[in-house]
């Protein structure tokens, strides 16, 4: 197992190099010059040439990539062009933190809602409830987030005035009870993005839970438990739920990927100062160093995530280890 993990980890830097080079090549292949974007309408071609030379933006692309790579290995991801005077790390870390907070809450919500609903549908198999729940979930999954958000904003922000129209103000507000007990209350900015993240994700979790729960229910030990006269709730909780969780490990990957990608348009639509919104702007203004750093971060996240899932899966189900090259 250890050898397997090490082998996979050794593979990570290779993937990162390939991925960043790919990104680098695409970004440079396209037309567009980041310096012109910040140079303004009155610009000075001579000075721009100088800057290009100093920043290493002229000359051989391979050499440029090499320079970037060596700097990056040493932890220097370069400087942003669209946000002058800040290193990429300085800009991205706080933004990643905001996106990560949102993402973690979104994942918790996705699984926290998906699993009970899946179990509910499985329990109600054979009645109208099961197909009703599943179809509703499918429907919710099918609505693109881009379609959902404007009506939500209209209803809750402009008509009812319950929620802010966008932005970000931390995860929690603190309510003091009697000035002594602190109760964290989710910040109102959280709800609409959370809905946007959850809708496309939790249907998948619920459906998988349902399917595995149905399979598990047919297993002998569940039948035995039932035959012993255990209550339904107990059967569900004791036997069905734990055994249905295993396949869900694989879905975490999909859910995380969904949340990461959703960040692009959810943050853009709702004006949340996270990494997704910023990177989209970076693509528009060809802020190479920001784009590269972000791809590297995302790629690392994806690879590590897959690895962790494989390892967890391997611990739970030893058969996987043998044919482990997913």
């Amino acid at each position: 197992m250890t050898a397997y993990i090490i082998r996979r980890l050794l593979w990570l830097p290779i993937i990162l190099v390939i991925v960043t080079f790919f990104t680098f090549a695409i970004a440079r292949f396209g037309p567009g010059d980041p310096l012109l974007v910040v140079a303004g309408q009155i610009r000075d071609d001579e000075v721009l040439e100088q800057i290009r030379a100093d920043r290493g933006l002229d000359g051989n692309v391979f050499e440029q990539y090499q320079t970037w790579l060596f700097d990056a290995v040493r932890g220097d991801f370069g400087e942003s062009i669209q946000q002058q005077g800040f290193t990429v790390t300085e800009i991205l870390l706080p933004k990643m933190w905001i996106s990560a907070q949102l993402g973690i809450i979104a994942i918790i919500t996705i699984f926290g809602l998906g699993i009970p609903l899946g179990l509910l549908a499985a329990r109600a198999n054979g009645t109208w409830v099961d197909p009703f729940v599943i179809s509703t979930l499918l429907f919710l999954q099918a609505i693109p987030v881009l379609v959902v958000i404007p009506p939500l904003l209209w209803l809750f922000a402009t008509q009812l005035d319950w929620l802010p129209v966008g932005g970000w103000d931390g995860l929690f507000d603190i309510w003091w009870i009697g000035g002594v007990i602190a109760v964290p209350i989710p910040d109102p900015h959280l709800y609409i993005p959370l809905v946007a993240f959850t809708l496309p994700g939790f249907a998948g979790v619920a459906r998988l839970t349902r399917i595995t729960a149905l399979e598990v229910q047919k297993e002998d030990y569940v039948r035995t438990a039932r035959a012993k006269g255990l209550s339904e709730g107990r059967v569900t909780f004791r036997h069905v739920l734990p055994n249905s969780l295993l396949p869900l490990v694989t879905v975490i990957g999909f859910a995380l990927a969904g949340v990461l990608e959703g960040a692009f348009f959810v943050e853009t639509l709702l004006g949340i100062p996270g990494i997704g919104r910023f990177v989209f702007q970076a693509v528009g203004s060809r802020d190479y160093d920001v784009i590269l750093a972000t791809t590297a971060i995302f790629a690392t996240a994806f690879v590590v995530m897959n690895l962790v899932i494989d390892i967890v899966y391997g611990f739970i189900d030893p058969r996987i280890r043998v044919g482990a090259s997913r």
Partner: peptide, 16 residues
Amino acid sequence: YTLAGGSALTRFENDD
């Protein structure tokens, strides 16, 4: 200056 957030008019009407 608030640098993030949605529709300015809605925030104006909510007295933000």
